[in-house]
Amino acid sequence: MELSDSELVKKSQAGETSAFQELVSRYHQKVFMVILGLLRNREDALDVAQETFFRAFRKINSFQGGSSFYTWIYRIAVNMSIDAQRRQKRNPLDFRESMDDVMEAQNQVAKDPFADVHDKELREKLTVAINDLTPDHKAVIVLRTIEGLSYKDIGEILGCSEGTVMSRLHYARKKLQDKLRAFL
C-alpha cells in the first residue's frame, strides 16, 4: 500500500533515507517545473531543484506538519529560485538558445514545420515575457499554471494573502496576454 506524504516524512525524520527518496520521486518533476518556470534555464533549474531537495533533507526534522509536504517543498523551491535569480546575470537571448538546444536534443520535432516555427517563436516570446515579470508575479503564474494550486496554498507558499495572490495573478496574466496577443 502506498504510504502518504506525512508517513514518508515521519520515516525520513526517523532516518530512513529510502522514505525520503520516495518523496523525491513523487515531487522532483513538479519541483523542477516550478523552478524552470522561474529561472527559465534548464541547467540552472536542475541544479536548484537538486539543491532544494538537499535543503529539505537537512531541514526535514524542522517540518512539523503544520502545512502539507508539497507546500513546504514548493516554498523552499521558490525561495531558492529567487536567490538563484538574484545571482543570475544572463540575458534573454541566452535563454532562447538554451531552450532551442534542449528541444532539439529531445527530438521535439513538430509535424508541421510552419507550426514548429510558430511554436518556437511563441516560446521565445513567452520566455521574454515571463522574464519581464517580477519574481513575485512569476511565482504565482508558475504555481497556479503548473500545479493548479489554490490561492490559499499559493499564499501559504509565498507568505502572502489570497487577495494578494489574486491581484498578482491578474496583473501577470494581463501582462503576458498583452505581450503575446499575436500568438494567442
Binding site: Q29, M33, G37, L122, V142
Partner: peptide, 15 residues
Amino acid sequence: VVKDELVTQAASIDF
C-alpha cells in the same frame, strides 16, 4: 502554452 512548455521539460527528467 505556459504549462505545456514546462511539462515537456519536466517529463524528460529521469529520476
